[in-house]
Design a protein around this nucleic acid. Structure first.
Lengths: 232, 232
DNA sequence: CGGGTTGGGAGAGCACTGCTCTCGGTTTTG
DNA sequence: CAAAACCGAGAGCAGTGCTCTCCCAACCCG
């Protein structure tokens, strides 16, 4: 059906790729607010209205870039985890953290669109973004689940409030997990903390000249985060 | 000098306040990207160019709103801490966290401007924002320092890398602190984690229907954060 | 092969934005 | 009281997102 590969359809896909590529470049250089379909059209060597044949609106272009960014981050995390011995659960979790940080520092504008303040007036359509957008946290959960099944997880064994426990039970069922509630809760916090650290660094909340090497700070925090879920 | 209170200067200050008030309203309803000087002028009942007599640019208006937001958050945190017994250090730290979260949920658009992705092309002038912008973290540090001096801090006693230790020493000197390195490092992480949790909740990273009450999640995490710095 | 259908670029146009300029009228000041 | 500062109105420029019509080339099918 939609798989007929005529010359025209191939040209269309090429144009689509060009639009995303140019959009990413503008995002990186000028930021999300300055992302303009007219500017993309200029770089594409085409009049602005022509771009609307491919992208319905500026928000649609932003969605394309969001999905693109989530995928790239997910690939980076997967590659980083893949390079660590499967039995080194702490190392795998640390690899996730480092991959997130490095990608965020390399692509701060895209990171900002994904994890910063949502661009006002724009809501990422969940049906297209939740899939790629959950790759990182799912990898993290996988690492913890593996560690738990291998008996390598020192479960903190702390009480969980009833209502929260019910939610965690649903999560455990949805993701087919066997780790106890406390680990999921600790993992949630570690997940949010990781992105809190990365956001602080990328968004400059630490201040300009506070640390000689923010990588040192991150490594120190990463160690604490790995321990906080019962690893290491 | 600049304190002459003529009718005109009072009118000017009133107009300034109106501009900030209207700007805040627009920020809350339409978000930062939709913040428009022309719209503010319309609400003010004045032509757009007249607003430029008071505010040099759109970015300048944003700076006014940023300072306003930092101040309001700082006031909320101060008030929350003030209601807790000075000897209850864990309670004071938790009060900071709850105040940040509640204010962020009440003013998500302003929170997004302060702690989300920086509005691209806009850089908050440090000489006007670092002061109000550091009130929260300084309050946190004060709580930890008080607890340490009262002997109520169970110091984790973990090693700190040399370069990081040097930076922490400088921080300790600048802020006149006596808490050990490890506590500062743990505090930094707790600070970033706190805002990570709040940002995840405000920016909807947890997903729409994951938790029946995100307050439960926050309270659970808050307990862990308080413990992580050696309190409670 | 030829006619109808579709894709897609060009251009004009609307409403909006930030921002600058000039022109008057008012208020403050020396 | 005159000079200076202040400040609102309005026009204007360049940019934006988006829609519309026009029109030509490519495609598909009988």
């Amino acid at each position: 059906m939609t798989e007929t590969s005529t010359p025209r359809s191939r040209a269309r896909e090429q144009t689509m790729r060009d639009i995303v590529r140019i959009g990413r470049a503008h995002l990186a250089t000028d930021g999300a607010a300055a992302l303009s379909l007219r500017a993309v059209a200029r770089d594409l060597g085409v009049v602005s209205s022509a771009v609307y044949r491919y992208v319905a609106s500026r928000d649609e272009l932003l969605t394309l870039l969001v999905v693109d960014g989530y995928d790239e981050l997910g690939d980076a995390v997967d590659a980083a985890v893949g390079e660590v011995d499967a039995a080194d659960h702490a190392g795998r979790m640390a690899a996730v953290g480092r991959a997130v940080r490095l990608w965020a520092l390399a692509e701060p504008a895209t990171y900002a669109v994904l994890f910063g303040s949502p661009v006002p007036g724009y809501e990422a359509p969940p049906e297209r973004t939740t899939g790629p957008g959950t790759r990182v946290v799912l990898r993290l959960v996988e690492v913890w689940e593996d560690a738990w099944r291998a008996g390598a997880l020192a479960v903190p064994d702390e009480p969980v409030a009833p209502r929260l426990a019910a939610d965690l039970a649903r999560i455990r069922r949805d993701l087919d997990l066997t780790v106890p509630d406390a680990v999921i809760a600790r993992g949630l916090l570690a997940w949010a903390s990781l992105f809190g650290c990365v956001s602080f660094e990328v968004f400059g909340q630490y201040g300009p000249d506070t640390f000689t090497d923010t990588g040192d700070v991150f490594e120190h925090h990463l160690r604490a985060l790995v321990e906080s879920v019962g690893l290491g």
